[in-house]
Write a protein that binds this DNA or RNA. Structure first.
Lengths: 335, 335
DNA sequence: TTGTATGCGTTATCAA
DNA sequence: TTGATAACGCATACAA
């Protein structure tokens, strides 16, 4: 009742393993009758090729690896669903890993995937990844890599992102047009690509409406909640206080909202609030949350498609693309 | 610059592959000096054993597989985090798969994991899994399997669940004690273990307080939203109408709340509402959601520990356990 | 059309 | 203490 191998079939049918192997792969240089015999017997014994043996032989696995900072985040889980949709259509398996925003964890994950001979890697960088050698090395060795969401310019390859600049621009403009003038920007670690882009969109909108940029209104927060609390306190202590908060991530938006509600800040009367998030239930929140939504599923799909282009080398010498997908501003009562 | 193998090291050092292999594994039957030489050289070339070759040889992978219905669900993503916490401590990798509530997908995932020689499987069944042969077969062949959350009695192995009965009992009792008498139960597919247990807790609470059980108040919903809408409509059309809704899953709670708000039902005045969910932001919802919270992280941890017990056969002939972890009722304004 | 031999990277068995 | 060889399951170059 253990797994059947080609050898078993060969023995039972008095053939050589190579004949069986070829018959199973439908080689035309095998007698039709023999082929039928082999296929029938294989079917009967429920023969399944051993993917590990294949990987060892062929240095590939028909699987792609995905690394995200965390899966408990709608943006990433939706992106993964987009990736899986494409991958399964192509007959590839998807191995999912979390870096948990840890650089070390990310390195381990990449090494493991490489060792396991994934055919390609989709990655959104951890918040603390600045050194790229763990990706540079496989990249140099020909491993297809595609970034999505959080990328690095240090590696020359395809990148798929939301139009972070425009999303932030729209959100900021919306706040300005609704009469807000002192718009605080609560954003993620400064060196992240998404932070840079979203910050640029925010600044561009201010500039368009001739609102002076005030550095004290821009706060960068890491992943610790105390840090956020401290930043919110500082912002609220400013005089004059900000009249709007624009938070540029899921985590920041929801934690920040929690803090503001604890402090009994009236939203949107005292403070307009806009998030940059993919939470499914923004409409159920009190107050219903105005939010910049990223096309997470499509980002995943597009990234996966580009990865398969690389894997199958369809577009051999085409330059690497940087695909930007449009965001949507969903205006609700919080602003 | 390709990956270095034992063969490379052997050639460079004029040794046989067996000597190098033994030296790398620290075998005491190798000359200390030789050992030093090999280890140093391996270190220098950044030698990493090829896990695929090892898997082929040893029929194992130092990885465990996890299958959940979907990762875009806080309960499951938190459980996965619990699993990873344990696994990484033990030096195992975790392969994550989604069944997307599809039986066929679940079967494919199991087969893939088995073929990839995972050392064990952690699974929460898809909503449409009734036939267990895809698990029965690996189970018979000695593959360690542990259920968490959604299990089947058909397979005799460890199971880790939240105390669904007690969670539902507490929630129902809470509604009764706050004066509700016609409590609707919106619950998942009837044959799921979690459904059975939660339904039993609901019934037990009614019985304790001598409230007659009314079948028309119990509605089972699949995963389509129209189905839920229809069920909500039917419940609201009852006369007398229900004065409370108890929804026993994340998805049901949030979709149902959306529907009720669309219909301008006043919560909790006209209708008390209690969910059975692990959403992180129940407190931000309008109205703040009363919810039964499952110890998702701990469930993942416990399940992983039991799986490693099986893998390492620590507790050889002990009977299989059914671990129940306590739920918490978080009372907020919706009830 | 079929069979033999080899190799993917590693370890275990046996021999030296 | 070290080395040669076979084996894990498969595919393929080469022979027949």
């Amino acid at each position: 009742m253990q797994t059947v191998t080609i050898k078993d079939i060969a023995k039972a049918l008095n053939l050589s393993t190579s004949t069986v192997s070829r018959a199973l792969r439908g080689s035309h240089e095998i007698n039709t009758e023999t082929k039928r015999l082999v296929l029938e017997y294989a079917e009967k014994l429920n023969y399944k090729p051993n993917p590990i043996a294949l990987s060892l032989k062929e240095n590939r696995s028909r699987a792609i690896g995905v690394i995200v900072p965390e899966i408990a985040n709608n943006f990433f889980s939706q992106a993964i669903n987009g990736i899986e949709a494409i991958a399964y259509n192509r007959g590839y398996h998807v191995m999912i890993f979390q870096s948990q925003e840890s650089y070390e964890r990310e390195v381990v994950n990449v090494q493991h995937m490489v060792a396991r001979k994934v055919d390609g890697i989709l990655i959104s960088l951890s918040g603390y990844t600045t050194d790229m050698s763990h990706l540079q090395e496989p990249h140099n060795n020909g491993m297809p890599i595609v970034f999505f969401d959080r990328f690095s310019e240090q590696i020359d390859t395809h990148t798929v992102i939301a139009d972070n600049f425009d999303g932030a621009f729209q959100a900021t403009e919306h706040l300005i047009l609704s009469g807000r003038k002192r718009i605080a920007l609560l954003t993620s670690l400064e060196w992240l690509s998404i932070t840079q882009e979203r910050m640029a969109g925010y600044k561009a909108a201010l500039k368009k409406y001739n609102i002076p940029l005030e550095d004290s209104l821009i706060r960068h927060c890491g992943f610790a909640n105390e840090e956020l609390l401290e930043n919110v306190d500082r912002l609220l202590a400013l005089s004059p206080a900000p009249d709007a908060f624009f938070t540029t991530s899921d985590r920041l938006a929801l934690s920040c909202l929690t803090i503001l509600k604890d402090k009994k800040v009236k939203i949107p009367e005292e403070l307009s609030f806009v998030g940059f998030t993919n939470v499914k239930i923004a409409h159920l929140i009190d107050p219903p949350l105005t939010t910049v939504v990223q096309p997470a599923f499509e980002i995943g799909q597009t990234a996966a498609e580009l990865l398969f282009d690389l894997i199958e080398e369809k577009k051999k010498n085409l330059p690497f693309q940087k695909v930007k997908l449009a965001t949507t501003l969903e205006v609700r009562n919080s602003s």
